[in-house]
């Protein structure tokens, strides 16, 4: 019973700045367990920063954050993370299998090698994303889209209660893109999902709620991009037009 009432994510009055440049100002919102949140907003608007605050990688200047009812750094073993897919560190000598096994670090003991149980779990995750045949390939030899699949497998193998994704389909071919979201939808039965996306098609078809982040945050408990969000994030509509708006996403024009 108690678990049902604990919100998946809770932010109260969060302020954050890099050096002295404010990035996020007075952010408050609550996400209920089992939600599927799509985060939109212009580049540099603070989406990734917000995600890193929730993961405990960054600490806010002010305010309160709870993930699964705990402080972010305490909850970190219960969360999954798919970072932005960058080309950095691609000469690092590590195989696809070993990258996926990193997702088991939260469960396995320090100072011990991975257990016999970890490898079948990694195999299962790699099969789900269709990368099992590349298990011995060096990670740097993969294409951007293939690497993205591996990063998703790495997050899944941790069996997270809440999954954070930073533009999971950025470099992925369109076919696999809908695969990923179908897959996340299935996963959403068991886990809360928070994803940053530029693709409004995703919002209309998959997510349950939307947040627009541009220094401040507007949260909407339905999969609708409100006029308020459009006004706040000027760049949002550019993306909307570029992708063609499924009419369900935008509410009827409201007169204030």
């Amino acid at each position: 019973m108690r678990e049902l009432t604990t919100p998946a994510v809770e932010m109260k009055g969060i302020w954050f700045s890099y050096e002295r440049t404010p990035v996020l100002e007075d952010i408050s919102f609550t996400l209920k367990e089992g939600d599927f949140l799509g985060m939109i907003g212009p580049n540099g608007g603070g989406k990734t920063t917000l995600l890193k605050l929730l993961l405990g990688i960054l600490k806010p200047d002010r305010g309160l954050i709870r993930v699964l009812g705990e402080e972010p750094h305490r909850a970190r073993r219960r969360v999954g993370y798919v970072p932005q897919n960058t080309d950095s560190n691609n000469t690092f000598p590590v195989s696809v299998m070993d990258v996926v096994l990193m997702g088991r670090l939260a469960i396995s003991r320090m100072g011990k090698s991975f257990s016999a149980k970890d490898r079948p779990m990694a195999e299962e995750a790699l099969r789900k994303v269709g990368m099992w045949n590349s298990k011995n390939t060096p990670i740097g030899k993969l294409s951007g889209g293939q690497r993205q699949r591996v990063l998703i497998a790495r997050a899944l193998v941790a069996e997270p209660e809440i999954l954070f994704l930073d533009e999971p389909t950025a470099k992925v071919d369109p076919e696999f893109e809908s695969n990923i979201y179908d897959f996340l939808k299935e996963l959403n039965r068991r886990a809360t999902i928070v994803t940053i996306t530029h693709d409004v098609g995703v919002i209309s078809r998959y997510v349950k709620s939307v947040a627009c982040v541009n220094r401040t945050l507007i949260y909407h408990e339905e999969a609708q991009i409100t006029n308020e969000m459009l006004e706040m994030a000027y760049e949002c509509p550019v993306d909307l037009i570029a992708h063609g708006i499924p009419h369900r996403v935008l509410p009827h024009h409201e007169h204030h």
Binding site: I57, R76, R77, V79, Y81, F92, V94, V99, L105, A106
Partner: peptide, 11 residues
């Protein structure tokens, strides 16, 4: 390989 991910995994 990925310091931030390692942190999230409790390392």
């Amino acid at each position: 390989y990925d310091e931030e991910f390692a942190f999230v995994m409790g390392v």
